[in-house]
Measured scan of single mutants.
Amino acid sequence: LGLPKMEVFQEYYGLPPPPGAIGPFLRLNPGDIVELTKAEAEQNWWEGRNTSTNEIGWFPCNRVKPY
């Protein structure tokens, strides 16, 4: 089972920042694999864990694709 995984195809370094105070941003590099921890199809921002860095944070969902 486990959490859904997504592959990063466009880098994200915190700009634009996540809206409001939902949480810290998650740095993404192309090729990184992100395990989704909070993701809803109608939301533009998802939370996940970058398996390369083990960091957890928020990122724009348009930077990832199904793994």
Rank of each mutant, 00 (worst) to 15 (best):
L1D: 04
L1T: 12
G2T: 13
G2W: 11
G2N: 15
G2F: 14
L3K: 10
L3G: 07
P4T: 15
P4I: 14
P4H: 14
P4A: 15
P4E: 14
K5H: 10
K5A: 11
K5L: 13
K5E: 13
K5T: 11
K5F: 07
K5R: 12
M6A: 05
M6C: 04
M6Q: 14
M6Y: 12
M6P: 02
M6L: 06
M6T: 07
M6K: 06
M6N: 01
E7Q: 13
E7R: 10
E7M: 10
E7V: 06
V8G: 04
V8Q: 00
V8T: 06
V8A: 10
V8W: 01
V8M: 03
V8C: 13
V8P: 02
F9A: 07
F9D: 12
Q10G: 05
Q10L: 11
Q10E: 14
Q10M: 11
Q10D: 06
Q10H: 05
Q10C: 05
E11C: 08
E11T: 12
E11H: 13
E11V: 06
E11D: 07
Y12S: 02
Y12M: 01
Y12F: 05
Y12I: 02
Y12C: 03
Y13E: 11
Y13D: 10
Y13I: 09
Y13L: 09
Y13C: 10
G14F: 03
G14N: 02
L15M: 12
L15Y: 09
L15A: 14
P16W: 00
P16T: 02
P16H: 01
P16C: 03
P17F: 06
P17L: 11
P17M: 09
P17N: 08
P18H: 03
P18C: 07
P18F: 04
P18S: 04
P18L: 02
P19M: 04
P19G: 05
P19F: 04
P19Y: 04
G20T: 09
G20M: 11
G20N: 06
G20Q: 13
G20I: 03
A21C: 12
A21Q: 12
A21N: 06
A21P: 08
A21Y: 05
I22S: 10
I22N: 07
I22C: 15
I22M: 15
I22Y: 14
I22R: 13
I22A: 11
I22E: 09
I22P: 09
G23H: 06
G23E: 15
G23F: 05
G23W: 10
P24D: 09
P24K: 15
P24W: 03
P24I: 07
P24T: 07
F25P: 15
F25D: 08
F25I: 12
F25H: 14
F25Y: 11
F25T: 11
L26C: 04
L26T: 03
L26I: 10
L26F: 03
L26A: 03
L26N: 00
L26P: 00
R27Y: 09
R27H: 07
R27T: 12
R27A: 05
L28R: 03
L28F: 07
L28P: 02
L28T: 00
N29G: 14
N29V: 06
N29D: 15
N29R: 15
P30E: 15
P30M: 13
P30S: 12
P30A: 12
P30I: 15
P30L: 14
G31P: 01
G31E: 06
G31R: 08
G31N: 05
G31K: 09
D32T: 02
D32S: 03
D32R: 02
D32F: 01
D32C: 03
D32M: 03
D32E: 11
D32K: 02
I33W: 07
I33D: 04
V34H: 05
V34C: 03
E35R: 04
E35F: 12
E35Y: 10
E35W: 05
E35A: 08
E35P: 00
E35Q: 10
L36W: 04
L36I: 10
L36C: 14
L36F: 04
L36N: 04
L36M: 06
L36H: 04
L36K: 03
T37L: 15
T37H: 14
T37F: 07
T37S: 10
T37Q: 11
T37C: 08
K38N: 08
K38I: 07
K38F: 07
K38Y: 11
K38H: 10
A39H: 11
A39G: 13
A39I: 05
A39N: 08
E40R: 12
A41T: 08
A41D: 14
A41N: 14
A41C: 14
A41S: 13
A41E: 14
A41P: 11
A41Q: 12
A41Y: 04
E42L: 10
E42K: 14
E42T: 12
E42P: 13
E42F: 08
Q43R: 11
Q43L: 12
Q43E: 15
Q43I: 08
N44R: 11
N44M: 15
N44P: 11
W45F: 14
W45G: 02
W45V: 00
W45C: 02
W45M: 03
W46T: 04
W46S: 07
W46C: 12
E47P: 02
E47M: 15
E47D: 00
E47N: 06
G48R: 01
G48H: 00
G48D: 00
R49L: 10
R49V: 08
R49P: 00
R49G: 02
R49A: 08
N50G: 01
N50H: 07
N50D: 03
N50I: 02
N50V: 04
N50C: 10
T51S: 10
T51R: 11
T51H: 11
T51F: 06
S52V: 08
S52N: 10
S52H: 05
S52G: 11
S52T: 13
T53I: 05
N54R: 08
N54Y: 07
N54G: 14
N54F: 05
N54H: 09
N54C: 08
E55I: 11
E55H: 09
E55D: 09
E55T: 09
I56K: 07
I56H: 11
I56T: 09
I56F: 05
I56Q: 08
I56M: 09
G57I: 03
W58S: 04
W58H: 03
W58M: 05
W58R: 03
W58K: 03
F59W: 01
F59R: 01
F59S: 02
F59K: 00
F59Y: 02
P60S: 02
P60L: 03
P60C: 01
P60Y: 04
C61F: 04
C61N: 12
C61H: 15
C61V: 09
N62Y: 05
N62M: 09
N62E: 14
N62G: 12
N62L: 05
R63S: 14
R63W: 03
R63Y: 15
R63A: 12
V64E: 00
V64W: 01
V64A: 06
V64R: 00
K65W: 05
K65M: 08
K65P: 04
K65L: 07
K65C: 06
P66T: 06
P66Q: 15
P66I: 06
P66E: 15
Y67C: 15
Y67W: 15
Y67T: 15
